[in-house]
């Protein structure tokens, strides 16, 4: 019997029954996990292996034969001005969105948290962009920012600043898209911060008030900010990852333009892989993309593991 081989771990129970129970548990467990395992294999693990393999070749979609080029694709990427620019643009985008979306999210959460009757009203408004289809809203932003027809420029003209070509001025295109990124993320971060805020005991604020923390700044510095530390770290990481994956707004609003001024990493991967069909090269770029994401994830795991439980 197979059961006898497995039994020793279950010593102490009546042998036969314990064996059968353990065997049943094993079979059921494997059965339950099997579909997930199979999908994991097909959807994630095999593609990852193929991806690594492709990145070392010169394969192009449809090509009949291909050969290994070692790290050639990676070397090419490093010296490719288009890719380097897209990497730099992505970092720039993250460095605008991160402080904006985290800082404003925190500010809004702190202000909203102290409201009682109007809290759900503000919550609803700020959360609206999270649920709305970004592509559709990006199209609307395009209308809003239109140099001649958009209301924003009409307003700027009226107060005497004159037209600003938000999306076609190379120095403004990326910051403009970043502002839209902030617009979309503030509500999401607000909700996370609100969850963190409601976990802070009210007693502490009262104790602080008696101890002399009279104004909002003191209360924030003494209680809110330190106790919100773990939440803040988490929000910073998730915002970084989301911002790093920016794609939709670029694809709809600028297509990387003008003159590559808003070309970002994922858009470059998309163009190489699915428009130009430089499959192997795109595989290498994807791996570089993955490395960045993994760095963020490692930091996240690290932070969450040693998340301070006071």
């Amino acid at each position: 019997m197979a059961a006898t081989a497995i039994s020793s771990a279950e010593a102490g129970l009546p042998q036969g029954r314990a064996n059968r129970q353990a065997l049943v548990e094993k079979l059921v467990g494997m059965g339950f996990a099997f579909p997930a395992f199979l999908l994991l294999l097909v959807i994630i693990i095999t593609p990852l292996i193929v991806l690594f393999y492709l990145s070392l070749t010169d394969y192009e979609l449809g090509a009949l034969d291909f050969r290994s080029v070692g790290l050639g694709n990676f070397q090419k990427a490093m010296s490719d001005p288009v890719f380097r620019r897209s990497l730099w643009n992505t970092v720039l985008y993250v460095s605008i969105v991160l402080p904006g979306a985290v800082g404003l999210g925190l500010l809004v959460a702190v202000l909203v948290h102290s409201r009682k009757r109007t809290r759900s009203f503000y919550e609803m408004i700020y959360f609206l962009p999270v649920t709305s289809t970004l592509i559709a809203m990006a199209t609307v932003w395009q209308v809003l920012l239109h140099p001649r027809l958009g209301p924003i420029n009409a307003f700027l003209r009226q107060i005497g600043i004159g037209e600003v070509a938000f999306l076609s001025d190379p120095s403004l295109a990326l910051p403009t898209i970043a502002v839209i990124g902030i617009w979309q993320l503030v509500g999401f971060n607000m909700v996370l911060f609100l969850a963190g805020l409601s976990a802070i005991p009210k007693d502490l604020y009262e104790a602080a008030e008696i101890d002399g923390c009279a104004n909002g700044i003191d209360r924030f510095l003494t209680i809110t900010w330190p106790l919100l530390g773990p939440t803040t770290m988490f929000v910073i990481i998730t915002t970084s990852i989301t911002a790093f994956k920016v794609f939709d707004t670029v694809a709809v609003m600028t297509r990387g333009g003008p003159a590559g001024a808003s070309e970002v990493l994922l858009y470059a991967v998309y163009l190489e892989g699915f428009q130009y069909f430089h499959t192997a090269y795109a595989a290498a770029l994807t791996i570089i993309f993955l490395v960045f994401i993994l760095i963020f994830s490692v930091i996240q795991t690290f932070v969450i593991d040693r998340r301070v439980h006071y």
Partner: peptide, 21 residues
């Protein structure tokens, strides 16, 4: 007067110690 101006001190049921300090 606001709480800190009243020259009173309070001990809370939960102690309300600042956990990060």
């Amino acid at each position: 007067l606001r709480p800190h101006e009243r020259r009173v001190a309070m001990v809370f049921q939960s102690y309300a110690l600042y956990p990060h300090m």
